[in-house]
Structures are given as C-alpha cells and as structure tokens.
C-alpha cells in the first residue's frame, strides 16, 4: 500500500466571496509501514488534510486541485459508493478529533461496531461480527461488558479505546489518528499511545498521527511533518528533524515543549504572534511576520519546499548559518 498526495489544495467557502485556504500545495508520500506525525498550531490545517484523504470534508469544504492516490487509485475521483464500501474502514480508517462523541448515545457500543462490520462485508453473519468485536475488545483490554454498554456508561479512556477498536475493525492498511489523546488524563494518554504503537505500527500498518504532543511523535513516528497555514514547512525523518530542525517554525514548536533533544526540561517558550489570515493570499513566506530571522526576500518570495540535509524544508535560509542561531 502507498498513499501519494500531490499539490493538494483544500478550500472552505464561508460565503459567496470569502474562501478559507486551509491546505495549500501539500505533497507527500506514505509507504507501507510508514508512520507520519503531523504537528502544527491550531488551525494549521491538520484535520482538514485528514478529512480530505478520507473524502469527508464538511459540506462547505472542497478540494480545489491536487491528486490523492492510494495504491495507484485516484481516490478523489472514485465512485463515492465504491469508495465508501471498499476504501473506508477497509483500507483507511480514522480516529477522529473529538472522538469522545463518536458513538451514538442511544445505541449500545458493541451494536454500533457490529453495524459497521455488517455494512462493509457481505459474507459475515451478525454472530461472526459479534465474535470479532469481542475478540478485538479483549485485545484492547476492554471488558466484555463494554459491548452491552451505552457510550455514556464508558469512561473517557474506555471510550477512546472503543474508538480505536472501531478503527481496527476491518483491519485497514492505514489509520489516521487525529489528536487521539487530547481529552484523556495522563495515564490513559500513555495507554492509548501504547495501543496505537502495538496495534498499528507494530502490525505494519501505516499511520498518520496528528497531535500537538511532540513527545509522542518522537516516540512512535518515523517521519514528521510541520504544517503552518496549510503549507508544509518541514518534512523528514523524525530523528533528523527533532535533533536538528532547519525551519524556524519547527524550531519554535520544538522550543515550546520540554526539550527532548537534550533529554532535560528547558524553559517553555512559545512562538509570539498569530497565524496568518487564511482568507488572504500570502505572497511570501507565511511565517514571515513571526519569524525571528526573516529578511526582506521572505516577504516577497515564497520559499519552495526543497531538500536540505536529508529532509524537505520551505525556508530561504534553511541551508544558511543563521538558522543555527534561532
């Protein structure tokens, strides 16, 4: 399996004349067994990117241009019903952001999972599906009663594990996890991360892991992508980028968490300023207003994503000495 995204642009219409440019010119490839972490401030387009891959954009969102192929199939132009039956959940599944409310509050959790199975398979009986769910529950350490419980009767951690179970129901090739730990306490966060590592990465599935929690990425992902204003700022191997970030925005993000490069806690800093207004066209570098090393050229000319030191970076000065002083 491989996922290939080329020059993807996603827009939201606010009203007749105003358009939000949520994802801009994004290209990357994900091979079998790859795990990609996506980081970026809120509003940087992470969830939009995930929705676009699953063709699940809100009604006012649309892919303006670009291509998404999955195993060579152009999934953006696939027959919707075929996509629903053959790709969703069977090949790609998602643990959505705010997944705490993913279950129908008036149906039993187990029944909902069985329904998903039955919707996608033709040769399984309800009993098979039930067995399958129970097995998955056991593997995910969910008590068997969970099957007969209503969503509100589960704890946050249990609910999140049930959502993960749901994502794994049909043994997909790729899972997208959109901030799966946000609403959980620390212990449950660790559990969920461990689950994802065991059940997805270690089983050789591909993973896109969206988070604000950089430490987790360091722990489980092979690759990492920083998104800013819907554009890729830096993309490459985790160990390379985290050790030696070359984009001022990545540097800023890494500085804003306890330092993982040196293995010791450093003073928290954050990046001053606000992300740009996505309804406006940005001529130069989107990070320009907040960048500590910006020069005049950054305002006028958009830096292209290019290979520097074994990763992709979109900064005019990525290969210059100044970057070391950020």
């Amino acid at each position: 399996m491989s996922l290939n995204i080329e020059n993807l642009n996603v827009r939201y219409t606010l009203n007749k004349s105003i358009v939000v440019k949520a994802v801009n010119n994004v290209s990357f490839t994900l091979e079998k067994g790859d795990s990609l972490g996506i980081i970026g401030e809120t509003g940087s387009g992470k969830s939009t990117l995930a929705s676009a891959i699953l063709r699940a954009l809100p009604t006012n969102g649309y892919v303006e241009s670009g291509k998404i192929t999955f195993d060579g199939i152009d999934i953006l132009h696939m027959d919707p019903d075929k996509f629903r039956k053959e790709i969703r959940w069977k090949r790609i599944s998602i643990i959505p952001q705010y997944s705490m409310n993913s279950f129908n509050p008036i149906k039993k959790v187990g029944d909902q999972l069985v329904t998903i199975i039955m919707e996608h398979t033709d040769n399984m009986t309800v009993h098979d599906a039930f067995e399958h769910v129970m097995k998955l529950f056991e593997e995910l350490n969910l008590p068997p009663e969970t099957f007969k419980k209503y969503p509100d009767e589960l704890s946050g951690g249990q609910k999140q594990r049930a959502v993960i179970a749901s994502a794994l129901l049909l043994d997909p090739d790729m899972v997208i996890a959109d901030e799966p730990t946000t609403a959980l306490d620390v212990i449950n966060q660790a559990r969920v991360v461990a689950l994802i590592k065991n059940r997805i990465i270690d089983k050789g599935k591909s993973l896109i892991y969206i988070t604000h929690d950089i430490a987790v990425i360091a722990g489980i992902a092979k690759k990492v992508m920083t998104l800013y204003a819907g554009e890729i700022m830096e993309l490459g191997e985790v160990h390379k980028i985290f050790k030696d970030p070359l984009h001022p925005y990545t540097i800023g993000l890494l500085n804003s968490v306890p330092d993982i490069r040196l293995g010791k806690v450093k003073k928290l800093s954050y990046i001053p300023g606000d992300p740009p207004d996505l309804t406006q066209t940005i001529k130069g570098c989107p990070f320009y207003p907040r960048c500590p090393i910006a020069k005049d050229i950054c305002k006028e000319q958009k830096p292209q994503l290019r290979m520097v030191d074994g990763r992709f970076v979109a900064c005019h000065f990525a290969d210059k000495e100044v970057i070391k002083n950020v």
Binding site: A56, K90, P96, N104, T115, I116, E119
Partner: peptide, 25 residues
C-alpha cells in the same frame, strides 16, 4: 451536525442507515 453522525459517515455506513439513526435520535 453531531459528531456521531459524522463518524458513521466516516465509517462508511450507508446514507439511508445514517438518516434512520438521525431520525431515531
């Protein structure tokens, strides 16, 4: 508009089924 309906759609349930769930709720 609720999350669980969006989730059912994500999970590839038939639109007809999703509507029925929405009506029932």
């Amino acid at each position: 508009d609720s999350d669980f309906i969006k989730y059912e759609r994500l999970a590839g349930l038939r639109e007809q089924l999703i509507r029925n769930h929405a009506i029932r709720n």
